[in-house]
Design a protein around this nucleic acid. Sequence first.
DNA 1: GCCATATAGTTGTTTATGCAACTAATTTCA
DNA 2: TGAAATTAGTTGCATAAACAACTATATGGC
Lengths: 150, 150
Amino acid sequence: MANSHFKRGELYSVINAMAAAAVARRMQKNFRDAGLDITIEQWSVLYHLWKEDGLSQQDLCNRTFRDKPSITRLIDNLEKLKLVKRTTSKYDKRKNQIYLTDSAKDLQQHTIDLANKTMDEALVGIAKDEIETVKIVLQKVYDNLNAEVK
Amino acid sequence: MANSHFKRGELYSVINAMAAAAVARRMQKNFRDAGLDITIEQWSVLYHLWKEDGLSQQDLCNRTFRDKPSITRLIDNLEKLKLVKRTTSKYDKRKNQIYLTDSAKDLQQHTIDLANKTMDEALVGIAKDEIETVKIVLQKVYDNLNAEVK
DNA sequence: GCCATATAGTTGTTTATGCAACTAATTTCA
DNA sequence: TGAAATTAGTTGCATAAACAACTATATGGC
């Protein structure tokens, strides 16, 4: 049974997914407690649009690391909430450009404050240099797994 | 706009979820490429049962950090795959005990090898002490967010 | 012993995810 | 120029997640 133990990655893998889940749940709860009717997944799309309005769906896929159907449906639901509008690009008929509505723009500050609140709650007792290490390692993990899969 | 930036957590939060997702996708791909017909979510349940057969559903919720309905449905599907059996505990009629089938036991070695392979792919170029830091920090994040929400 | 409270698991519901397959538009290459 | 290859987005499908509400069982306190 020596080799049936999940080598090295066990605690790492379990904790990695669990920490991410814990952050996600807390943030969703903070949104909900604040009376906000958006999911954190929707928020992550809005977040990128606040930074650069008019992105294509493919851009959003790349930036949020989701696949095309997932983005299509997230945008469907954001349209229903009147937070984004989909328009066809005038340069490439295959592309949609996704624009924020005024309602969405009004949400930016409040939701980012809540996100910061969430991170404050998550990062209690953790030193800045530790956070830096985590960022660098997780970025490396991400790059390792995405460089190969072209 | 100074405070509209997602303080501190931006890269951390994004990367944390994205690294977890990248690991998850890679591992699922490795399972699929090996001809295995189980999802990584199902595997995570089996993993805990390999370590301790006969756990209750509540135990599995705690160990995998999912809620009760999610575990119920995962076990439903694992039963359909004939990988687990649900029995009622003789000590507490509310509790089910979840037992591995022989088929499930036969999967242990191969899938753990694949999981190890996945972690090898993810952790290229990352030092052991960095991994330790990540583990410790993510555990702290998890504890921060779960200690309060009792 | 009895009742209020807590617990384990299930059902309902909505949102999300990702693979496969597809259509329409664009690009590439001979 | 035209056909093959590629790309952007959509639809189909199955799995998963979590909150709310519920039922049945167990526990605790009077």
